[in-house]
């Protein structure tokens, strides 16, 4: 089970004076159960890339395979693909439209043509997964707080029980606590249900904390691909394309330059504390 992109290119405004590559010759494989952090500055092609994974955008060149099947084949069902590859857009709460929370979450499974009972069960389960209590089921989505609305919108995708969940900047505009809650829930989904997660983010700290594999994009290409601890020591390359490594990377790097033999591949806070303590004179 996997998603494979084979030399995918996407061109905006093809045939006009504004013609430009949004994606250029991208080949990569996303394996089952991975937690991928996709980073890059605005306009680097992140959002365009993820929209290819569930067929919302079609590549001008190259092909996308889902579980070995060419999704551009004539008899391939895009509808099925979109159930399996769930995509949560930026500010997903802006797409809520039903009168109650539960009705909105049922919308996706209902479109799948599932029996009523199954639809209900999936909706309840999805809401539980994102931490929306039973007392809010019949509330209007517009009465909720911003963070709650966002979680209801994510539940709307989860209720379709996708095998792959893509989230395009799911924490944008939330306060620190709201950000943490959403990310923790995503991490739990990954761990407990083994869903493949693709997290599009601007925050190096977030992807460093949660992702097992990072894809760094610039100008429509994937320029770095690897585990966070392998990528962040190359922080100079990351800076060149307008991004920054996590603050911890900078601390470790500076300490090493100052002569402290710390491990510069560490991005995790606890590990950093432990690593630094080894080389300092402690009070107790």
């Amino acid at each position: 089970m996997s998603i494979v992109l084979d030399k995918v290119s996407h061109i905006y405004d093809l045939g006009t004076a504004n013609e430009r590559f949004a994606l250029k010759d991208i080949s990569l494989q996303i394996k089952d159960g991975e937690f991928i952090g996709l980073i890059g500055h605005t306009g680097s092609g992140k959002s365009t890339l993820v929209q290819h994974l569930n067929g919302l955008l079609k590549a001008n060149y190259g092909t996308v395979y889902y579980n070995g099947e060419d999704i551009y084949a004539k008899d391939y069902s895009m509808k099925k693909l979109r159930q399996k590859v769930g995509l949560v857009f930026q500010y997903p709460e802006h797409q809520l439209f039903e009168t109650t929370v539960i009705k909105d979450v049922k919308f996706g499974p209902k479109n799948m043509g599932l029996p009523q009972l199954e639809v209900d069960m999936r909706a309840f389960e999805a809401l539980k997964q994102v931490g929306i209590g039973d007392d809010l089921l019949d509330a209007s989505p517009f009465e909720l707080s911003g963070g709650q609305r966002r979680r209801v919108a994510i539940a709307g995708i989860l209720a379709m029980q996708p095998e792959v969940l893509i989230l395009d900047e799911p924490t944008a505009g939330l306060d620190p606590k709201g950000r943490e809650e959403i990310l923790e829930q995503i991490a739990r989904l990954h761990k407990e249900r083994n869903i493949t997660i693709i997290l599009v983010s601007h925050s190096m700290e977030d992807v460093a904390k949660y992702a097992q594999r990072l894809l760094v994009m610039n100008r429509g290409r994937v320029v770095l691909d690897g585990a966070p601890q392998d990528i962040f020591p190359h922080y100079e390359e990351i800076e060149k394309i307008g991004l920054a490594a996590p603050q911890i990377t900078y601390v470790m790097q500076s300490l090493k330059e100052a002569g402290l033999p710390v491990d510069t591949s560490i991005t995790d806070l606890e590990q950093a504390v432990e690593n630094i303590c080894r080389y300092t004179k402690n009070v107790n």
Partner: peptide, 13 residues
């Protein structure tokens, strides 16, 4: 355009 795509992702044809 974005809303249409988002609802397509939720299975609207």
């Amino acid at each position: 355009d974005i809303i249409m795509k988002a609802q397509s992702a939720r299975g609207v044809d």
